[in-house]
Computed example of a mutant assay.
Amino acid sequence: MSNFHEAARLSVTAIATLNGYRFRNAPGAHEAVVDYALAIGIVDTKGHAQLDQLRQLRHDINYPADLVEPSRRELDVIASLVTSVIGSASEKLPAPRIPPPPDQPRR
């Protein structure tokens, strides 16, 4: 669960960084990432709610007050959401500029 959350969070953070923004390492930062994903169109309102649920679920798992075990269906929904977030974030990245290979010495 933490890995799903981290993948989505880092994808959104990459776009924020590209746009000149940075999320503070402070309480509420992960929630700000979820809100930013909605603001820039990486997720719609339904995806925003799901991403926020993932954020809360990750928190509950990492800082348990009780044992949390998501169902297989929940895992499938989360995997689909994170795949969508990564894909949407990737589309917002500029095309990489790959230099041509160096000339090969002739034999």
Rank of each mutant, 00 (worst) to 15 (best):
N19Q: 15
H30M: 09
H48I: 02
E91P: 05
S84F: 06
M1L: 11
K46Q: 14
P101S: 12
K92G: 02
L51W: 02
L75I: 14
E69N: 12
E31Q: 15
A95S: 11
M1C: 10
A39Y: 08
P99Q: 09
L67E: 12
V34W: 04
D52E: 12
P100D: 12
I42Y: 00
Y21W: 14
R72E: 11
R24Y: 11
V34D: 00
N3W: 11
G47A: 01
F23C: 01
R24S: 14
V77E: 15
K92E: 10
V68T: 09
L10K: 03
Q53L: 11
T17W: 10
D60H: 09
G47I: 01
N25V: 10
S90T: 13
V85A: 02
I15T: 06
P94M: 08
T83V: 13
R9E: 14
M1Q: 10
I40R: 08
A8H: 02
K92W: 00
N62F: 08
L67C: 07
H30D: 13
Q53R: 13
A14L: 09
H5T: 01
D44Q: 03
H48G: 04
R97E: 12
V12M: 01
V33G: 03
P96K: 03
P27G: 05
A89C: 10
P27S: 11
P101I: 05
A7S: 10
N62C: 14
P102Q: 10
D103P: 05
A29I: 07
T17V: 11
T45R: 15
A26M: 12
E6I: 04
P27H: 09
A16S: 07
Q56T: 08
L67A: 13
I61E: 02
V33M: 02
I61F: 10
V33D: 00
A95Y: 03
V34N: 06
P102F: 06
Q104G: 09
A7L: 14
L75T: 10
L38Y: 07
G28F: 07
I42L: 05
I40V: 15
I42G: 01
G28M: 07
